[in-house]
Nucleic acid binder design. Structure first.
Lengths: 340, 340
DNA sequence: CTGAAAGCGCTTACAG
DNA sequence: CTGAAAGCGCTTACAG
């Protein structure tokens, strides 16, 4: 490892400049003559030089590491988030460090400051549900670690974030169902502690109101984003005397459970009943019939979050406006909806 | 960041020793008097000292980083692997860096040496299918990066690995089906390029032979581990005049597809037909009926892989035996099997 | 636009 | 069992 390691010194010698100049080129400073820059770049290319990140980190004030912490959410969700962040990090010479947090028995996160400080990251990406944990956010702020949250629902001005418009998406989905002729629409809510649940419910409700369609109380079931909870809610909905002709579940897992419950009840989908979900995670296209759902731009969110964090140093630091990004969703029409 | 950063110097002063001694304690060297060690440890505790990883890495020959590279396999699989590795890394003061590789248009991996060298990791964890890519393995070996592969199927003596006994697991599953009274068992094979496919097929076949049960050619379908391929295979199997009473799919996704295909064909599971899978990923308990399947110890594999890599420096380096680890699987009985 | 000096916080030999 | 010195490969001021 020590033997043939090539350093900034080698590059400097080959290019006939000082290491300071090479350093400037690596760091993309502007104050280098164009011809000089070119010859340095050429030397780097010839030598296949790779800056030593530990040295850069030790000497300077950037670590070239971004962190991503999570509390075991849906694996597919996390994965897409990761993919997006990763892609962007690798593209820009950053590395991604991930760690998982777990809730203690009291339901609170036991913050391990050590773990947070350990890697000295330049910034932290925080997907839900961690992004709404006051403990986590406070710990990070105390450690002065910049953060970008993904789809947070609380403390919105505490940090920049990336999100999509859940309410509008739910509104659109409901309008779609109505456009297909449905007037009896059941709704399975998401976890009461997840902010997105309220927004999706609000969107669905507004669409119904705007179209003068009633929403009986027993058409609304409280789920928890899990398959099992969705299954139970669906069975309750299907057991109604005047049952809905369509069921809108707040996420794909619960929609998949609804389809299973329908099958169990001897109803085919979409002929016997229409079902739609939300997320467009792999399970949506992994079941039969494939789910009509809302595609969340999860990968794009991860990518954008990384971008904001990496770009932080290039920004005018006096511009303290919190920059948020709202990404587009998409209504994905597949085979789980038919006219009633 | 520079201001209140506390270093090895502070600890040394507080403990009344040289930084060398503190360094020894941090690195868990044995040659420190017990009383000395205790006072150093106390100083570390009082100061809440955290070693600077960049400095350690720059000065020494360890980076305290482990890498994990993947080529978008099943998200749930990757996630469990990650969880295991992560858990172990954090516990031991290591960080995990992950990167994804993508196949080029020619189906080969375009190795970005830069990416591999970039982080100077102490070792690399390689889950399938990357673990069977000669290009990847060669690049890593050239870079002299230690690696531990997860469930590799080829070049088995190229590096240590962690795995389970796929063949035996498939054998057990088949025996279970037979014990429930099944004699007409259909089989959906996995991707022909994945070594595990052959092993699972071999295990199933052997169990049949050992029990004098015939395996007609049309009872074997070639799948690709995807839901869609499983669906097609299942439809073919169900369309047979003398159709099987049980279908053994080589993974959970295809088993889930088989259940959907059965439902579509108007057959209930397990009353009309029994279905079993392999993996026990979340989808297995996320569908109805829940799948009887083989639980792969994926998380344990990730954990073990990290352990082997971190422990490498503590080993007798002259002991060049390749140490492999075979972890236990488990037959998980749920609701997708009934007597024929 | 370019460079010589000092130093980031550790670990490696090398002594004793 | 303990310590003084040198150095890992960079970046930060500071000069010019």
């Amino acid at each position: 490892m020590k033997k043939d390691t090539i350093t900034i010194q080698n590059v400097a010698k080959l290019a006939g400049v000082s290491i300071m100049t090479v350093s400037r080129v690596i760091s993309k400073k502007s104050n280098v003559k164009d011809a000089t820059r070119r010859s340095v770049l050429e030397a780097i290319e010839n030598l296949q030089y790779q800056p030593n990140m530990s040295a850069r980190s030790l000497a300077g004030d950037k670590s070239y590491f971004l962190g991503l912490i999570y509390d075991n959410p849906n694996a597919a969700y996390l994965n897409q988030c990761l993919m997006g962040a990763l892609h962007n990090c690798n593209k820009n010479g950053y590395n991604l460090i991930i760690s998982s947090f777990e809730r203690g028995g009291d339901g609170d996160y036991k913050i391990d400051q050590a773990l947070i400080n350990h890697a000295k990251v330049d910034g932290m990406i925080i997907p839900p549900p961690l992004c709404d944990s006051a403990e986590i956010l406070t710990a990070l702020k105390n450690a002065e670690i910049p953060m970008v949250r993904i789809a947070p629902q609380t403390m919105l001005d505490y940090s920049p974030y990336v999100c999509m418009d859940d309410q509008r998406a739910a509104y659109d989905m409901t309008e779609y169902l109505i456009s297909q002729g449905h007037k009896k629409i059941g709704f399975i809510m998401g976890h009461p502690e997840h902010g997105a649940s309220k927004l999706r419910y609000a969107g669905m409700k507004k669409a119904l109101v705007d179209n003068n369609i009633p929403l009986p109380n027993d058409y609304i079931q409280q789920g928890y984003f899990t398959y099992k909870s969705g299954f139970n809610c669906a069975e309750a909905l299907l057991a109604l005397k005047d049952r809905p002709t369509a069921i809108f579940a707040s996420n794909d897992d619960m929609a998949a459970a609804t389809i299973s419950a329908a099958h169990k009840a001897g109803l085919s989908v979409p002929e016997g009943i229409s079902v739609v979900g939300f997320d467009d995670l792999p399970i949506a296209s992994t079941i039969w019939p494939q789910l009509t759902t809302i595609r969340q731009p999860i990968m794009a969110m991860g990518e954008k979050a990384a971008e904001l964090l990496m770009g932080a140093e290039n920004q005018d630091t006096n511009d303290s406006r919190v920059k948020n990004t709202i990404l587009d969703y998409k209504l994905i029409i597949r085979g789980s909806v038919a006219a009633p």
